[in-house]
Structure formats: C-alpha cells, structure tokens
C-alpha cells in the first residue's frame, strides 16, 4: 500500500509468548517493540507512536490497570489485554479502564490476529467517520435515515433498541461491558441494572439474528458484555 508500517508495542514478561505474538504480528506487516516491564511499556507508548498495544495484565512489576489508566490520560491507542486470571471481574475492570479488547490465555494466533484486525479497523474508521450505511450478515442499517432492514424487510426497533444497536455499530468488533452499555443507553444512574441490557439485547437478537439461540453477530461475552461481529470469519 506504500503506507509506513504500523507500530505495535508488546508488554509481556514471558519470552516464548512474546516470540509467537511477534512472529504473528510481523507476518501481518507490523513493526513490534517488545518490553517485559510496565515502566518501559509506558515510555515506549509515549515515544514510539504505536497504533496498537498488547498488554499482559499479570506483569511482575505492577498492576496493568494502573498502566491503562495512566495511558488513557493522554492516548487513545487501542489496547488488547492478555489475561490468565480466574475471574471475569479483572476483564471487566480492564475494559472499563479503557482496554479495547481482551484475550484469555491460552489463545491461538488466529484469535489474536482477528482482534488485532478489528482494533486497527476501528481505529481507521473513527479516523474517517462512520459511513452512512452499516451492514452485518443480511442486516442493513442506514445510520442517516435511521432505518434497519433485514433482507428486504424493514425492522422496527424501539428507541432503546436502536440506541443499543447504534452503540454496538460504533464499537463494532470491540467488547462492550454491561456497565458501558447501560451508561451510554440508559444514562449514568442505571449502571447497576444489568438485566435491562440482557432483556433488550435479547429483543435485538430476536429481531436481527436468524437463530437467536445461536447468534452469529451479536455475541455474548459471558459475564463480561457483548460484541458485534460484522462477518462470521472475523
């Protein structure tokens, strides 16, 4: 394409994991800077102008959450978090703290690259602004006319359902936590009513998915939140 190669920073203390992640990313055309400490990672993030940061939450020299909060103070570079932790609470915390996506160990190269692609595409899209028409599967959303079609059938969404769909589209490929969705759709006073999101997400699936019990696009990240996937291969 002739564009300069994008830069990724990999913060991970396990050498072998660094090795295969670097191999995979380099094969995709990334320049990868490795570091095994959060301190160095933060310095690199400031100096090397990265387009992606891959961060292991379980580093020996500190808390990954601190890193995220610090970073989000001055940068919106996409961050993918690697987690080997037992609880889902850490993932939610990381996402709420500003991480864009997460991978649970053990993960494969394919999963990693899919997330990386989604993150960089989102970054590109936000740079250009969303197009007026968004499509996933056989669903077509016209964001300027505010209409939704499934195949050739016009679908009627309630205001809340539409706001939720809009939010998913704006964050396509990214995991949204229940709390984030509640804050964006219902407002900051409803962040504890998790069942609202589940009920309306169910409605949305009923209207947009072919088989709501086996969704292809509006995916559940169990106990964490939801993710909109544009194509099944993503």
């Amino acid at each position: 394409m002739g564009e300069p190669q994008p830069v990724a920073i990999l913060v991970e203390d396990e050498r072998q994991i660094r090795r295969f992640v670097r191999t995979a990313l380099e094969a995709e055309g990334w320049i990868v800077h490795e570091t095994d400490t959060l301190r160095q990672g933060l310095i690199d993030a400031g100096t090397r102008k990265p387009e992606l940061i891959i961060l292991d939450l379980g580093l020996p020299d500190g808390d990954g959450m601190e890193f995220l909060r610090d970073l989000r103070g001055w940068s919106n570079v996409p961050v993918i978090v690697l987690s080997a932790r037992v609880g889902e609470a850490d993932k939610i915390e990381a996402l709420d703290a500003g991480a864009d996506d997460y991978l649970t160990k053990p993960f494969g190269v394919g999963e990693l690259l899919a997330r990386v692609r989604a993150a960089s595409r989102r970054r590109r899209d936000t740079g250009m602004g969303l197009g007026s028409v968004f499509e996933f599967g056989d669903v077509k959303v016209d964001l300027s006319l505010r209409t939704v079609h499934k195949g050739s059938v016009a679908i009627h969404l309630t205001p809340i359902e539409y706001r939720m769909l809009n939010l998913l589209i704006a964050n396509c490929g990214k995991v949204l936590t229940h709390r984030q969705i509640l804050r964006e759709v219902w407002g900051p006073s409803h962040t504890e009513d998790g069942h609202y999101v589940r009920v309306y997400m169910g409605h949305l699936r009923q209207k947009l998915e072919n088989d709501p019990a086996q969704p292809k696009h509006i995916l559940t990240e169990t106990a964490v939140g939801y993710r909109l996937v544009q194509s099944a291969t993503d």
Binding site: Q16, V21, A24, A27, K105, P106, F107, V109, G110
Partner: peptide
C-alpha cells in the same frame, strides 16, 4: 494459590498453543 496455579499452568499452555499455531502459518 489458585491464581498462581492458574497463571503458572496457563502460561506454558499459551506458549504451546501459540507456537504450534505459528508453525502452521
């Protein structure tokens, strides 16, 4: 203990999965 076990067991498994997949690519 569980967190340590979880971390210590999963890290080599992650390496195994990742490296094996890298081989195929």
């Amino acid at each position: 203990l569980l967190a340590a076990l979880s971390h210590d067991l999963r890290t080599p498994l992650t390496v195994l999965v990742g490296l094996a997949e890298s081989l195929t690519l």
